[in-house]
């Protein structure tokens, strides 16, 4: 047997490893294709509907994208435990935290790439399909909608991966993300309070034309709330991951 080459840092290795895992599962690749289609529709709608829209189609497309991203992220993490790969993964990376970071970077990167392609595709389709209605892609409202969508979905990646690592169960992880992201949007109760849940903060970030009685947080506050949720979730996941037996 020949000796393998010298091992480099665990961090970059863990990111590469998670990228290989992402690419090598048919279900994950299919899910990202579906996310691309939904995001292309979302971007096209943002361009053709006035005001970046609180309009239902945009609302629905964002929710669907969030759900799909949550599913991929939760499965990428909880699937390690349900499929039994956690043993080989954490034997290869016994410090464990690099696995969490690797998953976040691999899936966050894939998501941004998909969003970039979808934005160009959606924008082109809108310009060709409805030239008179289509706004400029450089309209600040449109840029904010796309940027807000990017930040929202990255937040969902972090929440999903963290929830998957914390619950170690695909169903449990999905339920947790659903409760934080989808439920508060679908069933709005105590709007002043639920505005601080990730799902509604995301709406505040993406939609600019919402009426004041919707009690959505303004853009900067919404972004800060989303980031805070993501940071807390990731830190909780890292702490538990390091301490708990695999």
């Amino acid at each position: 047997m020949t000796a393998p080459g010298p091992a480099a840092g665990a961090w970059s290795g863990a990111v590469r490893s998670e990228w290989v895992k992402l690419r090598s599962l048919r279900s994950t690749v299919t899910a990202y294709a579906a996310i691309a289609a939904v995001l292309a529709a979302l971007c096209g709608l943002c361009l053709t509907l006035p005001g970046g829209g609180t309009e239902d189609p945009v609302f629905a497309a964002l929710l669907l994208a969030e759900l799909l991203v949550a599913g991929v992220a939760v499965l990428a993490a909880a699937g390690e435990f349900s499929a039994g790969t956690a043993r080989s993964t954490f034997t290869a990376v016994p410090r464990r935290t690099p696995v969490l970071v690797g998953k976040l970077l691999a899936h966050g990167g894939a998501l941004l790439a998909v969003l970039a392609v979808a934005a160009v595709a959606g924008g082109t389709a809108a310009a060709i399909g409805a030239p008179e209605a289509a706004g400029s892609p450089l309209d600040p409202l449109v840029l904010r909608a796309v940027g807000g969508t990017a930040l929202t979905l990255l937040g969902v990646v972090v929440l999903g991966v963290s929830a998957g690592l914390l619950t170690r169960s695909p169903a449990g992880g999905l339920a947790a993300v659903f409760a934080l992201v989808v439920l508060p949007v679908v069933v709005v109760t105590a709007p002043e309070v639920t505005a601080y849940l990730p799902g509604r903060a995301a709406q505040g970030l993406v939609f600019t034309g919402a009426p004041p009685e919707a009690h959505l947080l303004p853009g900067a506050a919404a972004a800060a709330v989303l980031v805070a949720w993501a940071v807390v979730a990731a830190m909780a996941a890292a702490t538990v991951l390091r301490r708990r037996d695999v």
Binding site: T2, G13, S17, K21, L25
Partner: peptide, 27 residues
Amino acid sequence: ARGVHPGRSARAHLQALAATHRFSRRR
């Protein structure tokens, strides 16, 4: 028990492990 995702090929499983330590594809 088996530590391999059923949807992943044997080669991809080993490549994912190899990537953590930068082992070569040849290995």
